[in-house]
Simulated scan of single mutants.
Amino acid sequence: MLKKGDRVVMHSNLQARINSGVIWTCECDEFLDYRGNTVVRLKEFGDFYTAFLQKVDVEGMLGVALKRADRLQEENERLQAELELCREYFKKVHDELEKEDSADESVDNILRLNTQLLISLAALEAAE
């Protein structure tokens, strides 16, 4: 039985296609209309047959969305740290190439920096 304050979505009719994805709020408990059909009044819509309504758990949906948002935030933070490591690496490589040292010495220094970057990236992945 639908009650005042319940959240519902429409299904299996033309209005459901027109209002796809809309979550409606029941303005009252369900009742029998003058024809004997079970209906409920939907906020900003009007009376609607309960046979074509499905109650939804908005709080549960919100919990799922918040968990996903937390996972995305963690992923974003990891990627930001990885990006910062890469920025530092490329700045060091650029600085190394700007030096007037011998080419062999520059290559050795860049390879050392590359190894440090790979170690740092592996440490970030292991921290997950």
Rank of each mutant, 00 (worst) to 15 (best):
V9Y: 06
N19Y: 03
D95Q: 08
Q73P: 04
D57P: 09
R41D: 12
A81L: 04
G46M: 01
R71L: 11
E98I: 09
S120W: 03
V64C: 09
D57C: 06
L62W: 15
E82W: 08
D47N: 15
A123R: 15
Y89H: 15
R78V: 08
A103F: 06
E44H: 11
N114T: 10
Q54N: 14
V58E: 10
L111W: 13
N37K: 04
Y34W: 03
M10E: 00
E84W: 06
L62A: 11
K43I: 06
G36K: 01
D57T: 07
L85R: 04
E74W: 14
E82T: 07
H94D: 14
A51M: 02
L42W: 11
V107L: 07
L117I: 10
K91P: 02
D70E: 14
A123F: 01
Y34G: 05
V39W: 10
V22C: 03
A69W: 14
I18M: 08
Q73K: 15
F48P: 01
V8H: 07
C26A: 06
K55A: 15
D108A: 15
S12P: 08
L117G: 04
I18P: 00
V93N: 00
L83A: 10
A123Y: 02
L113W: 02
R35K: 08
L32G: 12
C86M: 13
M61I: 11
Y49M: 08
N114F: 13
E74R: 15
D101S: 11
V22D: 03
N19I: 02
D101P: 01
D70N: 15
D104F: 10
D70K: 12
K3T: 07
I23D: 12
T25D: 11
L83S: 07
L111V: 09
G60R: 14
R17H: 02
I110Y: 00
T115D: 07
I23R: 13
V107E: 14
L14R: 07
V22A: 01
K92T: 13
